[in-house]
């Protein structure tokens, strides 16, 4: 189920440009790890290198090691597609497939990969995933309506249901609440808490209160100057980071002195 992630000396490039340098960290299973930092510090780039989405950008490349339960995902003979089935992702803006119904959206991971399942099994899976995403009660009467026809917050929970329906070990969330109103944000945060016992969750957020509310561990990313690569400045339990950080830069950031 939930797996731990080990990152060692990770350098991430866009073509020749070094965007993130020398990140090493351990992400514990069954916990929520928040990544915070100012805009452009590379935290989203880092997140996308954890499920090999980064390499979809032309000429992007990665050096270093990312291991999931000890297996290097950048090793030879590793298919990025297999990696992504183990590591789900939720994006900044809700992106349900517009041509599919709510039901089909949840089943998308199964249907699109061409796996064969019985109709009743898929029904089950859809219901369980939607229940896990705290969305079942709201949409059970309109499962076959378009996925784009519900509110933004519901769409984002639909995307989470879609992600967990393929049964990943890890969930990556890239600022999942930045396009949502406060009430929907609350619903997502509650959901993150509910999911924690079963998954390894990594969330990038701009919102420090959110990091403080939902995460067990927090990593702070920063960059020395514009054009310099982003680095992991400090990583510790969330309580520690927000009360007694070791680095001056972290303290400046969380007390709102810059960024």
């Amino acid at each position: 189920m939930a797996k731990h992630i080990q990152v060692k000396d990770l350098d991430i490039y866009y073509d020749e440009f070094l965007a993130v340098q020398g990140v090493s960290m351990t992400i514990e299973p069954r916990s929520v790890t928040a990544l915070i930092g100012p805009s452009g510090c590379g935290k989203s780039t880092f997140l996308r290198s954890l499920n090999r989405m980064h390499e979809l950008v032309p000429k992007a490349k990665v050096e270093g090691q990312v291991a999931i339960n000890g297996r290097d995902i950048y090793g030879n003979n590793v298919d990025p597609v297999d990696i992504r089935s183990e590591i789900g992702m939720v994006f900044q803006r809700p992106n349900p497939f517009p041509t599919m119904s709510i039901y089909e959206n949840v089943a998308a991971g199964i249907r699109l990969t061409g796996a064969r399942m019985k109709r009743s099994e898929i029904d089950d899976l859809v219901e369980r995933s939607l229940r896990s995403a705290n969305l079942w009660n709201e949409v059970k009467d309109r499962l076959h309506k378009p996925g784009g026809g519900i509110s933004g917050g519901q769409q984002q929970r639909l995307c989470i249901a879609r992600a967990i329906a393929v049964d990943p070990a890890v969930l990556l969330m890239d600022e999942p609440c930045s396009a949502l109103d406060p009430i929907s944000t609350q619903a997502i945060e509650d959901l993150i808490n509910d999911l924690k016992p079963d998954y390894t969750i990594v969330i990038v957020t701009h919102n420090m209160q959110q990091a403080a509310r939902v995460s067990d561990t927090t990593g702070f990313f920063n960059l020395a100057d514009v054009g310099q690569p982003g680095r992991l400045i400090e990583m510790d339990t969330t309580a520690k980071i927000f009360s007694a950080p070791r680095e001056q830069a972290t303290e400046d950031y969380i007390t709102g002195r810059f960024g």
Binding site: A115, R131, S132
Partner: peptide, 16 residues
């Protein structure tokens, strides 16, 4: 809510 008994066992076609 564990979903572990579901699909990762399902055979995926050769995507390559």
């Amino acid at each position: 809510m564990p979903l572990s008994e579901t699909p990762s066992a399902v055979a995926r076609p050769r995507p390559r």
